[in-house]
Write a protein that binds this DNA or RNA. Sequence first.
DNA 1: ATGAATATTT
Length: 869
Amino acid sequence: MRVTTMSSSPLPLPLPPSTTSFTYSRGHHSSSSSNLSMVTNSPSQIQHWGCEDPYQHTSPNPPSKTRTIRYRLSQLCREGQPQIARQLFDSIPRPTTVIWNTIIIGFICNNMPDEALLFYARLKSSSPGTKCDPYTFSSTLKACAETRQLKTGKAVHCHVLRSHLYPSRIVCNSLLNMYATCLSSTDDETGSVDGDYSRYDLVRKVFDTMRKRNVVAWNTMISWYVRTKRCVEAVTHFMMMMKMGIRPTVVTFVNVFPAVSRMGDTKNANVLYGLLLKFGSEHANDLFAVSSAIFMYAELACLGAARKVFEQCLDRNIEVWNTMMGGYVQNNCPIEALDLFVKALESEHTVVLDNVTFLAALTAASQLQQLEFAQQLHAYIIKNSFVSSVIVLNAIAVMYSRCNCIEMSFSVFNRMQERDVVSWNTIVSAFVQNGLDDEGLMLVYEMQKQGFMIDSVTITALLSAASNLRNPETGRQTHAYLLRHGIQFEGMESYLIDMYAKSGLIEAAQRLFDKNCTYDRDQATWNAMIAGNTQNGLTELAFIVFKQMLEENVTPNSVTLASILPACNPMGSMALGKQLHGFAIRNSLDQNVFVGSALVDMYSKLGAITCAENVFAKSPEKNSVTFTNMILGYGQHGIGEKALSLFHSMRESGIKPDAITFVAVLSACSYAGLVDEGLQIFESMEREYRIQPSAEHYCCVVDMLGRVGRVVEAYEFAKELGKEGNLLGIWGSLLAACKIYGEFELGKIVANKLLEMESGNSTAGYHVLLSNIYAEEGNWEFVDKVRKMMQEKGLTKEIGCSWIDIAGYVNCFASRDRNHPQCDEIYEILGELATKMKDTGYRSCLNLQKGWISESEELENLCYDLDDI
DNA sequence: ATGAATATTT
């Protein structure tokens, strides 16, 4: 660390900024890149303040009059009337340095740094005789810092050097602050710093060459280190400063607190807070310090410590309240945040709530996801604030969207007088998150039409929509837009990977994963890749990525587990599933609602319905997915009654079933033959839950009717759906029912409908079914026709396959397969079983009497048929 | 009359 060069340098600031960046204009110079050059266009019309101006004809101004006018100027600026101050200033024929300073400072105080710079330029060009003093320099440098104008700041630096005055400590501090501010934002002129100094060295150099560094200089340095994300250096500087015997101020602590909290250094946080107390009660009671300490502890998730600081502060201002509430919100504790909000309401005689308070409450309400409370809060805000700002309205829209109430969200958006990019992003995301992806995409068009630019948040919403819609076209376009417009790529990887994987383009996802984020892959990126592999059936790859993630010490979260758990099912490995369950328990992730749902699904798909039941019973939190998975499990295990009763208790507990829940419960009814119950539930879908039945639901009902032989009813029902949706499944299950119940005429009608629908290899099964129907009728001519049709289309029926995990080894069985090591034994037992079945009255669907196949073949086919049922 | 600094929606 170099902090020792202060006495060796002859010049206080040996950093002549290059003359090229000296952009202040003197008229004959070209002044291409300077903001100061605007001075030549500045309409310095002399306007009179008031009717009479006592100074209009007096020149030069007498000292006493100067004092009066300076006083009036600063008073106007303090009263927030800089425009009137400007008029007064313009009426003065020859303003003195002090007058110039006053107007410049006045603009800065009124948050008009650009105006301040214009007046500095005017001072330099229109009255070259007027000297600048330390006040001029430090004020102007502040304006440069506020406007992030490094070039202008350098020009002022030059003026300081040329003034041949030894710059005062305050001017040096102002210079340091100007460089530190301009060289820490991301949008500055990176790399354009000339000479041998990198941007960081420049700030260091100014600091190192200062003759006397007081606490302000140190504070500036600490704050600069924190802003440029070098927290270790910030703390090191703090300690060096202490060692040199410089007494820290409140600002020092306010600056250094975020350094330790960002590092997650609770120990040093306690040390620093202890130091703050040690340096006197005026420190501990300072509201800036209290607020910063609360924020620090909240960022470290030490909410107890934060609350203690909060409670110890007796004279809280609104910032302190807001910081504490924000701390709870940040740590996902909406109840505590809202509790505090109520307390703030109760102490309204001591503080006035502002928009930031409402924002914190609204964000907490978004986390709480209780529509009723959301509406109460909304009503309260309407009643108690005169005009809500865009930010507050945006937060209200978010809140309704999180409560799954898109109608309210949209109506808030619709009624907004003024909208910003965040409003648009909010409403687009709201639609996408509530399953209205197409509407979300349309709103992006509208947004662009109204002149708002797509930004990185819009991109994430677009990618989610593309992913939900399985629409790689939209996804690719969005990816291209992102690259073409140079929108920040960081943080986008997981969305892109998810989109490509869900759209079935797993190679593209893998490429992104491999190339674009070889280092610094965040949790979400890993999760997206694991989920992508699982969803595309690449279960082994999913496990490889999961293992890699653990090896690279990335902490898995609930999403990781919920993504990897479904990978156990295709592998049929109960051992893996149990290992993951154990892993979840060890990492205290098993209480999570997503993990619980995934565990229920995993166990029930692996046939361990009792394990699924246990996980379900022990889940502290259950959502519609948890219930749906359990109902699905019961259905698949043929326990229709339990599925139904669980569906009813779900209703009673107030958890809203969704479209998939109905698929689960209807198919459970179907498997268990509970037709009347099923039909009743189907009818309640739209009536009670306002869920429009989709093709899948129709398919369940057709299947349900078909299975019990109510084939004609099923046919009438299927016709109701018209031409929309995935009709293939509906007609397919009807066809199977026709075959089983010998409704051959209807079967043929249905089969021909099916064959009209052109749709890949999935129709192979229907061809087989149709040929079987003809075979049962003995219509061999048509059997042949159908078989030939299949050959022409190149269709082969997919071989059914099943598997079971025994002692860690997955045994796989396929029809006519002879690869299993215990193949002979297996077929022997299968033969025995088939004989027993025949003895007890089982009849093959294929009519053996026609002599179409031999008896031994028929035995084999029996196994094949069993697989089909 | 000049320098350093807390809470904020997608």
